[in-house]
């Protein structure tokens, strides 16, 4: 790897870290805007002034915001996300298991949708304008244009209400039977896959079409190359950067989609935890969840950037 590439990659990672800092500031500031006194809410109206003052000091609420931000950031760096207001448990502990659940859901979705979307994105680009392309593209536009909850609703209607294959709005607790697990995951994964694949197909198709327009692809055609050779040998190697970028961006839609999907299917993931935290105004929990989401998003974007750098032949050689 040459030093220029290394510098570029380190630069990208640096930008991601700086962005994460700004994000943490925004998240902290947003949660600071909560009206009313947290301590008052926590202890109830009957609390004595001494108790209020004690708790206030214990929670460092008597310090200026900037100090609390620094303290919170410091804790964050050590993996200490603070304690939940609602049940005094460590936020890290609350999040732990839930995060694993969400990651499981995301991994299943990605494993399911990435190959399908790649295939459909590339094939629609190759047979651009064909009936197949128009059919897939219409479905893609339709899925992109509707809210995730509508996709979920339709999935439930089709698979649970009409076909009766899968359970509707319940997430079963029985995990001993592999078939039951699959059935339990099916609805959320199908819904998320639809939403994520639609984005991915659209962007992959656009990336491949853009490369197919390149003069070197026409040159290959004028050398007598077959269509498959033009695509596989000439277009795809140059489309890797844009395609990976498209995949990373689409997968970031998972983060938004997961909030809705976990709520609908009552799935015990981190997004559900966060929505619940919002309703109980559990600040440390909201902050912790928000940081994890942003970290996930930034990781995806940074990976996309790095792959784009590595895929550029001018930089690689």
């Amino acid at each position: 790897m040459n030093p220029q590439v290394l510098t570029l990659i380190l630069g990208r990672i640096g930008v991601a870290v700086v962005t994460l800092l700004i994000v943490s500031l925004i998240v902290f500031a947003a949660t600071e805007m909560l009206p009313g006194d947290v301590v008052q809410i926590l202890l109830g109206q009957a609390a004595t002034p001494e108790a209020v003052a004690g708790l206030r000091q214990a929670m460092n609420l008597d310090q200026p915001a900037i100090m609390r931000f620094a303290g919170w950031l410091g804790g964050l760096a050590q993996g200490d996300l603070g304690h939940s207001y609602a049940n005094r448990m460590a936020v890290a502990e609350l999040i732990g298991g839930r995060l694993a659940n969400t990651l499981k859901l995301a991994a299943l979705t990605a494993g399911f949708s990435v190959p399908i979307a790649l295939m459909l994105g590339i094939t629609t680009a190759i047979w651009r304008g064909s009936l197949f392309d128009r059919a897939v593209s219409s479905i893609v536009v339709a899925v992109i244009s509707v809210p995730e909850f509508l996709v979920a609703t339709l999935a439930v209607l089709v698979f649970a209400v009409w076909l009766g294959w899968l359970p509707a709005l319940s997430f079963g607790g029985d995990t001993s039977d592999i078939w039951a697990v699959l059935r339990a995951y099916a609805m959320p994964v199908i819904t998320l896959s639809f939403v994520v694949s639609a984005q991915m197909i659209r962007m992959t198709r656009a990336a491949v079409i853009e490369t197919l327009k390149a003069p070197y692809v026409e040159m290959a055609f004028l050398k007598g190359a077959s269509r498959s050779r033009m695509v596989l040998r000439h277009a795809l190697p140059n489309a890797i950067g844009p395609i990976v970028n498209a995949m990373a961006l689409s997968l970031s839609y998972l983060l938004g989609g997961v909030i809705i999907v976990e709520t609908i299917f009552n799935y015990p993931g981190i997004a559900k935890l966060m929505v619940d935290a919002v309703s109980t105004r559990d600040l440390p929990l909201i902050q912790g969840c928000a940081m994890i989401f942003c970290l996930g998003y930034l990781t995806l974007i940074t990976i996309a950037d790095v792959v784009a750098i590595l895929a550029n032949p001018r930089l690689r050689h």
């Binding site: 962005t19 994000v23 929505v275 919002v278």
Partner: peptide, 22 residues
């Protein structure tokens, strides 16, 4: 830079946090 940072908060999440706060 500032707007990049804003856009690296997933949109639904941003909505959740702000609506929860105010």
């Amino acid at each position: 830079r500032v707007l990049d940072a804003v856009s690296s908060i997933p949109s639904k999440l941003f909505g959740l946090v702000v609506v929860a706060a105010i």
